[in-house]
Amino acid sequence: MFASFLFDVLVLGTIYMLFSLGLSLSWGVMNTLNIAHAEVFMAGALGSWLAAQHLGLPFLPLLGVAMVTGIVLNVVLEVAVFAPIRKRTADPHQAELSIVIASIGAGTALVVLAINITQGLAVSIPTAVFERTLVPLAGLDATNIDIIIIGVALVIGVGLMLFMKYSRHAPALRALAHDPYTCGLLGISASKLSIVTMAVSGALAALAGLLLCLRIGAIDPHMGEPLIIMAFTAIILGGVGSVGGTILGSYLLAAIVSATVNYGDPSLAYTVPFVVALVILILRPGGIFAQGQWERP
C-alpha cells in the first residue's frame, strides 16, 4: 500500500515537475508570467494527435512534434506579443500585468481553436501508435507510460539543473533575471535569451501535455487549466526561478495531494496544498528554497 503511494507520488510529481519547470523558467528568468502555458501544454498533446491521425507518425516522432509545437507557440508569443509589450511600456510592473492579460487572451484563443478542431470532444492518441501496457514492477500497478514519464523527467530535470549550474550561458541568464537593461550594456542580447528561454519553456510544457494525455488516455481543450494552479503552488513552494526548488516543490505537492486522496478526504485534494502553500508563504515568503534575485536561475 505504502509502496503504491510512493509510486503514485513519483509519477504525479514528475508530471507536475515537467509542467512547472517551463513556467518557472519564464517567470524566474524573464519576469514573464505566461498564463497561456496551460494551453501550450494542451496544444502539445493536440498537435501530436493531429500528426498521429493524419500522418500516421509513431510514438518517438510524436515527442518531437509535441516539443516543436510548444516551441513555435511560445516563440510566436514572445516575438509577436510579449516583447512588443515590454518595449512599449516604460513601467516594468505595468508591462508584467499587460503580459499576464495578453497571455490569458492568447490562451483563450488556443482553447477556442482546440474546441473547433476536436468539436468539443475528448480525443486520444490511437492505440496503434501507443498502447498502455502493465509493467511488472515489485508488485506495483505500473504501466509503460509511467516508466517513460519518470525516465524522461529524470533526464530533463538533471540536465536542466546541470545546465543552469555549469553552462557558460547560465551567467547570462542570471544577468537577464537581475537586470535586462544592464545585459544590453554588457553585450548580452536580452531578446535572444528571452526567445531561447520561452522556447525551452514551451517544449517542456508541450512534452508534459503529450505524456499526460498518453497516461490518462484523453486530450481535452481544458486539460491544462487545473495544472496551471498546481504549478503556481509548486513554484511558490520551491521559490520562483529555482530549478531545484521547483523540482522539490513539485514532488512535495504531489505527496500532499496523494496523501489527501489516500489517507484523508479526496474532495480536499486540491484544497490542502493551497493551505500548506499559504502557511509557507506566511513563514517564508520567498518559498522554501528561495534564492536572492541575482541567483534566480
Rank of each mutant, 00 (worst) to 15 (best):
A170Q: 09
A177N: 12
L10N: 05
A3M: 10
L185V: 01
S24N: 15
N31Q: 12
A199D: 12
L57D: 09
I235H: 05
A83E: 14
T197Y: 03
I235N: 02
I104V: 12
P273V: 03
I35L: 14
I247Y: 01
I115P: 00
S194C: 00
L77K: 02
A231G: 08
L23V: 03
I104P: 00
L186C: 12
A254R: 04
T197S: 08
Y166W: 12
G70T: 06
G202C: 12
I235E: 03
V68S: 06
V135T: 11
L268R: 12
V9Y: 07
F59N: 01
C213H: 02
A190H: 04
L110W: 07
V75A: 09
Q94S: 14
V272K: 05
L73E: 01
F5R: 11
L227E: 01
P126A: 11
L176N: 01
S26V: 15
E39Y: 08
M223P: 01
G239K: 05
V129E: 15
E295W: 08
V76C: 06
I104M: 12
I236D: 01
I229G: 09
R296P: 03
F7W: 13
F5L: 15
L12D: 07
L140I: 12
L210G: 03
I188H: 05
A170I: 03
A95Y: 09
S48C: 13
T69H: 10
G64W: 06
G105M: 11
G238H: 11
V100Q: 07
L18F: 08
M230G: 06
D141F: 07
R284T: 07
T133E: 13
D179W: 04
C213R: 05
L21S: 04
I247M: 06
K192I: 06
T69C: 13
G244T: 03
A170C: 06
G224Y: 08
T197R: 02
P136H: 09
L212M: 08
M164G: 08
R88N: 15
T143C: 00
L210R: 06
A234M: 10
M67L: 13
A208S: 15
V111G: 00
K87C: 01
E225W: 11
A290S: 11
T133V: 14
A36C: 12
L252Q: 02
S98A: 14
S103A: 07
L18R: 06
I229T: 11
I101Y: 07
A90R: 14
A255R: 11
M198I: 03
Y263S: 05
L23R: 07
N262L: 15
M30L: 15
V68E: 01
